[in-house]
Amino acid sequence: MKDMAPDTGVLLSVRGLSKFYGPRIGCKDVSFDLYPGEVMGIVGESGSGKSTLLNCLAGHLPTDHGEVLFSGRDGGLRDTLQMSEPERRMLGRTDWAFVHQHARDGLRMNVSAGGNVGERQMAVGARHYGAIRDSAIDWLGRVEIAEDRIDDRPTAFSGGMQQRLQIARNLITGPRLVFMDEPTGGLDVSVQARLLDLLRGLVREMGLSAVIVTHDLAVVRLLADRLMVMKDGHVVETGLTDQVLDDPQHGYTQLLVSSVLQV
């Protein structure tokens, strides 16, 4: 009996990526590979370059050096940094998704929950109101938002609900790669736990590949297959999550892990 996923090759390959803000390092010489269905966690203290790296990967920030190779549906690897803007924006609303730390950066606050969830479908040509609404209802259910909230605006939602709505809005078109910047940041602990559970379920069920930035080691423990530790813009350690957390090699990672364990 065989239930192993076939070896489909790399989904995202980052090579020598660097970004400077004037003389200051944003992130420097970052390389890693991400395989289909894999979740990569990026941890590090404030200012270590996590968001910079994520925004460079997603094409939201111009990059100074390096390549971000993505495996398109046709199978070939392409450097997304060399794509034209229309191509990259198209990728951003089809194969890719981006979950912002602050839900209001990733939602339209003056549009109903249903409109927020339906937007990506309409953006790629859906023109049947009933069908758009049905899948919006389906997705609200999957992120545990009651159907009768579909016509409410996100301003009427709690922080946790807004974040779940943002996730539904991003996942509805079945992206192959999701970037998340502190998806549980700013939420209180019990809300965080519920959101994490939900994310873990969706990641497994959809076989999502994701790059998740956080400085919460509990988040990576729960979600990430592999872990990258950053400090001052550099990657100081990388490996399987459990290995890195249970047997950290780099002095900085040891400090990070032990300080968290003391909390």
């Binding site: 609303r93 549009v111 409109g115 953006a123 109101y129």
Partner: peptide, 18 residues
């Protein structure tokens, strides 16, 4: 310039839902 007009239909969607 990129012919990204999904938002126009979001407006019509909002109309119908309300």
């Amino acid at each position: 310039s990129l012919e990204e007009y999904g938002l126009m239909h979001v407006k019509l969607y909002e109309d119908i839902s309300q």
